[in-house]
């Protein structure tokens, strides 16, 4: 009896050190020289969110010749509640996008990916922090964005990677992204948005080599309410890790321009 009570008390003590569910983990990241949480490094998602943000089963890939090498891996949902709150017309468009994704997905054409998709594409990206700006450089298509850490500024025009203003909220880097054009998608399942998209990203260190990545997505033209995704990001810890060149334009040219090749003369 006495023994049991001791165990129960010990259990409580252990639980007491665990933060309440839903709160940020109590990890304090190392600091940069100017005292900010140090997120410098090469990071990568390790999930199949780029295939489909929502939970999905494994499926046959679009190129039969590639068999198991390029079929669709299964994946758990990264969407809070596993529901993307599309307005009715938008829900129909997403279905159409999904059915025709090889033809319509901007990733197939090597177009700049937009935010947040750039983060969980199956390629690493690098964070370089300075006092005034934080650069995020992505291996995919050499995409890049500069996050302004000073007084927020306004975009002069819409662009593929949008306009990023950042600030620190305790341990968390918060990035507010606006002015993205309507031509990027969220994933290969045809999840999409309009130019009214407003994205708020939160990067929170959760251990030396992992970050929590949480995103709130708002677009009144496409969704009935804001919705959230979250996933861990992992540090590429290889000693020599670095971004390599993935200039994918040339891998799309046969697809885009191949039919216009000169026919061999007889």
């Amino acid at each position: 009896m006495y023994k049991l009570r001791k165990i129960v008390v010990a259990g409580f003590l252990v639980l007491g050190t665990v933060p309440a569910w839903g709160q940020a983990p109590a990890y304090r990241a190392p600091r940069t020289a100017d005292g900010k949480p140090n997120l410098n490094g090469i990071w990568q998602a390790n999930n199949s969110a780029d295939w489909n943000l929502q939970g999905h089963s494994a499926a046959q890939g679009p190129v039969y010749a590639l068999g198991a090498v390029f079929s669709i891996p299964p994946g758990l949902s990264v969407v809070e509640g596993d529901e993307i709150p599309y307005l009715p017309a938008a829900a129909a468009k997403q279905k159409e996008n999904h059915a025709n994704w090889v033809k319509l997905d901007p990733e197939v054409k090597c177009y700049l990916p937009g935010v947040p998709r750039a983060t969980y594409l199956p390629y690493p990206f690098q964070i370089v922090q300075s006092r005034e700006n934080i650069m995020m450089a992505y291996e995919y298509a050499g995409a890049v964005r500069t996050i302004n850490m000073g007084a927020p500024t306004k975009a002069p025009a819409d662009s593929w990677m949008g306009w990023s203003n950042g600030h620190w909220d305790g341990e968390t880097l918060v990035v507010d992204v606006t002015s993205q054009n309507e031509d990027t998608w969220f994933d290969r399942a045809g999840n999409f948005h309009s130019e009214a998209l407003h994205v708020v990203e939160r990067y929170t260190p959760r251990s030396a080599d992992t970050l929590n990545y949480e995103v709130t997505i708002e677009d009144p033209k496409v969704f009935s309410r804001p919705w959230k995704i979250s996933m861990p990001l992992y540090r590429r810890v290889e000693k020599d890790a670095r971004l390599l060149e993935y200039k994918c334009v040339e891998f799309t040219e046969e697809l885009l321009y191949g039919t216009l090749r000169k026919k061999a003369s007889k």
Binding site: N40, M135, A137
Partner: peptide, 17 residues
């Protein structure tokens, strides 16, 4: 842009980084 242990050179032309 300079971060710890890295320097980023971003060309305006075609966002080459």
């Amino acid at each position: 842009v300079e971060g710890t242990g890295y320097v980023v050179l971003l060309h305006e032309m075609d966002h080459s980084t």
